[in-house]
Amino acid sequence: MGTPLSRRRVLVALATGVGAVGGAGLLSACTGSPGPVIPTATPSTAPDPLLAVLTEREALVAQYDLAGRQQPDLAPRLLPLRDQTEEQVVALRLALALPEPSSEATSRARTSSAVPVEPPVTLEGLRSSVRATATSAAAVCETTTVERAPFVGSLAAAASCHDLLLR
């Protein structure tokens, strides 16, 4: 951590996202905007707890897609949440040092999820899934490494915010 900001400057720092806050500013300098700071995976024999966080959010993106197809009138409300969840999926794959899914695989997944009987997706069902992602990310946040904790905590907070907008 560099020289602390003068306290009088804190309000400016808060407003611009730098400062003590300074630590966050230093960390965010390591990545391009608007992507997150993502510590990558370390080799281990145990399953990485972040994998479960990733799987949940991948399923959530599919659920948003399904909801959008079934209820197009909800699409404007759901699309920003869906897109932000997809951003999180990309960041989680990066954190886990996983390759990006090929466009062919993505296309196959979309096609297969479009046939033949789709379970109905309700707003309440989406909320329930979103709340589950908040809970699991919060649990991982408590025990993960110091490098990952801010990232995972941010994912938990984001899910709480999405839950609010689905009410």
Partner: peptide, 28 residues
């Protein structure tokens, strides 16, 4: 909006400065 974003950033930063689960819960 800016005040709350700044506050969120400060508490997010705390998460990476401790391994104490209770303090992490507080910060989260």
């Amino acid at each position: 909006v800016h005040l709350e974003e700044g506050s969120a950033a400060a508490w997010r930063f705390v998460l990476g400065q401790t391994e104490d689960a209770e303090l992490r819960r507080t910060a989260l």
